[in-house]
Simulated scan of single mutants.
Amino acid sequence: MSTAQESLTKTEAFFNKVSQKLMDENLWFAIGESVLKIIAILIISGLLIRIGKIAIHNFFKVRTRAPLRISERREATLMKLLENILSYAVYFISIMMILSALTINVQAMLAGAGIVGLAVGFGAQSLVKDIITGFFIIFEDQFSVGDYVRIGPFEGTVEEIGLRTTKIKSFTGEINILPNGSIIEVTNFSLYNSVAVLDIGIAYEGNIEYAEKVLQEYLETTTEKYPELVKDPELLGVQQFGASEVVLRIVAETLPMKHWYIGRQLRKDIKLVLDEHGIEIPFPRMVMYSRQEGAGQKELGK
């Protein structure tokens, strides 16, 4: 028998063997059973995650009516963290069950993963550092979801705090994802009241005492108009002498992160009040002299 005939015979034998396997009813029954198990696992996993999240939300709703409760910002952080932990746990169990449905020895794989994990653990120090740092951020309540913070060069609102990363949404909409292990210094603007500082310029020709009186009368009415103010703004007095103005300083204590809004509103109102009382807010002026006029005046002087 030639070599070509031998290879043809082997090929036919291989295809016959494959066709016999494909025609085996037990094989297709096993495949169908595995597919049904996987679909059932995915559906149950999705339901468990959804039911678990609803239970977490309901738990914190009950907490809001309790006499002893933690702050809303901390509740939002813990709620998001518990949802993430629930999702990770369900996904891990689902993957193990799917592998088991595919007749893969999960126990042997986990044992091997333990040995490999021990070797890889020395190179995963950054991951461990991220998780430990994330735990202490939440435990010490350094910042929470909804807080406005500055971390390094990034500044914005905390969208999510996980065990490994923190997401910060900047003012222009970008999402900055920071590993928790890289968070060294944090400036939290949302823990305490903010202060709006306003510098108001009055012309040197104006009556400073009258301007202070007008401003003081207006400031005493602001807390009724703006609930974001903690108390009446305070007129400190003359802050400095500018090139063409006397600068008066006003400070206003506001609720956390409301100082920008209050500052804009007060500047608008103060401009209208000063205009109403005829108090001039100076603006830059340019005076031009002609040399010819100056020379003519000298000749007339002679």
Rank of each mutant, 00 (worst) to 15 (best):
Ser2Met: 07
Met286Glu: 14
Arg69Val: 15
Thr166Val: 13
Thr157Phe: 09
Leu110Cys: 02
Leu22Val: 03
Ile168Asn: 01
Ser87Gln: 07
Asn84Arg: 09
Ser7Glu: 15
Ser2Ile: 12
Leu22His: 00
Ile281Ala: 00
Ile104His: 10
Tyr88Met: 03
Glu185Val: 08
Trp28Ser: 01
Gln297Glu: 12
Glu185Asn: 13
Gln297Asn: 10
Gly296Thr: 05
Leu178Ala: 08
Glu220Asp: 13
Ile95Lys: 06
Ile177Arg: 11
Phe171His: 07
Ile161Pro: 00
Asn180Val: 13
Ile104Met: 08
Gly294Cys: 06
Pro153Cys: 03
Thr133Leu: 01
Val35Phe: 01
Thr11Cys: 12
Glu140Trp: 12
Ala113Asn: 08
Ala40Met: 05
Gln239Asn: 03
Ser94Asn: 02
Lys10Trp: 01
Ala211Tyr: 05
Gly146Leu: 10
Trp260Arg: 14
Asn26Ala: 05
Ile95Glu: 08
Ala30Ile: 08
Met97Arg: 12
Ile183Tyr: 06
Gly114Val: 05
Glu280Ile: 13
Ile39Asn: 03
Arg69Ile: 15
Ile151Cys: 03
Glu185Thr: 05
Leu36Gly: 06
Val116Cys: 12
Ala66Glu: 15
Ser94Cys: 09
Leu22Ile: 07
Lys167Val: 11
Asn84His: 10
Leu110Val: 10
Glu245Pro: 02
Ile43Gln: 00
Glu72Ser: 09
Ala30Lys: 13
Lys167Ser: 10
Leu78His: 08
Gln216Glu: 10
Glu185Ser: 11
Phe14Ile: 04
Gly146Ala: 10
Gly123Asn: 07
Glu217Pro: 03
Arg291Leu: 14
Ala295Gly: 06
Ile250Tyr: 07
Tyr192Cys: 07
Ala55Asn: 01
Ser100Met: 04
Lys10Pro: 04
Gln5His: 15
Gly296Met: 10
Ile177Trp: 10
Thr221Pro: 09
Thr254Gln: 09
Lys169His: 04
Ile175Pro: 03
Leu255Lys: 12
Met1His: 15
Leu229Ser: 09
Ala295Ile: 14
Val197Trp: 05
Ala295Phe: 08
Ile38Met: 09
Gly32Met: 02
Leu48Ile: 00
Thr187Gln: 12
Gln239Cys: 00
Thr133Ile: 13
Ala108Tyr: 02
Thr103Tyr: 07
Glu299Tyr: 11
Val230Trp: 08
Ile183Pro: 02
Pro282Gly: 03
Gly206Cys: 11
Glu6Lys: 15
Lys37Asn: 08
Tyr91Pro: 00
Val120Phe: 11
Val149Lys: 04
Glu209Lys: 04
Ala55Glu: 00
Ala76Glu: 14
Ile175Lys: 11
Ile85Cys: 00
Tyr192Met: 10
Ser144Arg: 13
Pro67Thr: 08
Ser190Asn: 05
Tyr218Arg: 09
Phe171Asn: 08
Lys231Gln: 11
Lys169Met: 05
Glu174Met: 06
Ala124His: 07
Arg264Trp: 02
Tyr289Ala: 14
